[in-house]
């Protein structure tokens, strides 16, 4: 797909999101969550480019969400909270990345899973601080100094999510086209070649890991500002699995894939739950099976296949 065509597609996509949010008010909330999860899935996709699957990235989502919940009382401004939470998630990503970037494949996936479950347990066990599974309420915040009521606040966080989604998609595109990003493919095929070229694979993976942690943190902060209630379940392994699911559904071929996947995932889930409240999991599973069987490159490959 050409540069211009992808940009056009992204623009259409953004307009469609805004139009849907305008026409159907309750979809604002669902679409904001979808965009947030799309950003997190984009991070997971970067690691997937290096052939590494993380089953623990919900940890960064939950970490940033709790950071927002704890800090919102002191820092009541969303435009400060968001970068702060992203920075904190990136720092955590750096610390954990230094350790997990040494491992590959199943070990990489399992270590991420294990660490995320440790964090989940901390959220649950430090009951007097986090209120355990009941979760924490996120106090009301201002946007650029303006107090917002419900509808205004929903629009503010949707627009913020859309801007950040576009921003991170552009960043990811630039990054993947840069030498450091191209080197990720090298980790997937054969690492020794990278070393012969003078590129340390560990550092290549670490950069991708910190970026992906920042993206997951962005998602967490946006989700916390949208739901205004955070629970440890955000960091549970099924939430990490959901991100991988979204990448597979959307396709890892381009930066639009995770967003397509996230929106399809949320909409299928919402409409399945609306039509059959007790069998929505079945429908979601059937959709994923269909994608795996008939569109191995995800929804994104369907778009590309028809247009290329």
């Amino acid at each position: 797909m050409t540069h211009r065509r992808e940009a056009l597609l992204a623009l259409l996509f953004a307009l469609a999101v805004l139009a849907a949010a305008f026409a159907v008010p309750w979809l604002r909330f669902v679409l904001t969550l979808a965009l947030a999860k799309g950003i997190a899935a984009l991070g997971v996709m970067l690691l997937l480019r290096a052939g590494q699957v993380s089953f623990g990235h919900a940890m960064f989502v939950a970490f940033a969400a709790y950071a927002v919940a704890f800090l919102a009382g002191q820092v009541g401004e969303a435009l400060l909270l968001l970068p702060l939470a992203i920075l904190l998630a990136a720092l955590l990503g750096l610390v954990i990345g230094l350790f997990v970037a040494r491992y590959r494949e199943i070990f990489f996936g399992m270590l991420n899973l294990a660490l995320s479950m440790v964090f989940y347990s901390l959220l649950e066990k430090f009951y007097s601080i986090t209120h355990g599974t009941d979760g924490m309420r996120v106090p009301a915040v201002t946007w650029a100094g303006m107090a917002t009521e419900r509808v205004g606040g929903e629009w503010a966080v949707l627009v913020a999510a859309l801007v950040l989604a576009i921003g991170f998609a552009l960043l990811a595109r630039l990054y993947l086209a840069s030498p450091l990003g191209e080197a990720l493919q090298g980790i997937k095929t054969r690492e020794a070649r990278l070393e012969f070229m003078g590129l340390p694979p560990r550092r290549v993976l670490l950069v991708a890991y910190v970026l992906s942690a920042a993206m997951a943190g962005t998602a967490g902060a946006l989700i916390a500002l949208t739901t205004r209630h955070v629970t440890p379940l955000m960091g549970y392994w099924t939430a990490s699995g959901e991100l991988v699911f979204i990448v597979i559904l959307g396709g890892a071929g381009g930066v639009l894939g995770p967003f397509l996947g996230a929106i399809a995932y949320e909409l299928v889930r919402v409409y399945a739950a609306a039509s059959v409240a007790d069998a929505w999991q079945l429908i979601l599973g059937a959709v994923l099976l269909a994608v795996i069987l008939f569109a191995r490159g995800g929804l994104f490959s369907l778009l590309r296949g028809r247009r290329a």
Partner: peptide
């Protein structure tokens, strides 16, 4: 009827719907 099983995010979305 709405399923609470999937967690708070899903529930808040369904509540709005």
């Amino acid at each position: 009827f709405v399923d609470e099983g999937p967690g708070v995010e899903h529930l808040l979305g369904e509540f709005r719907r």
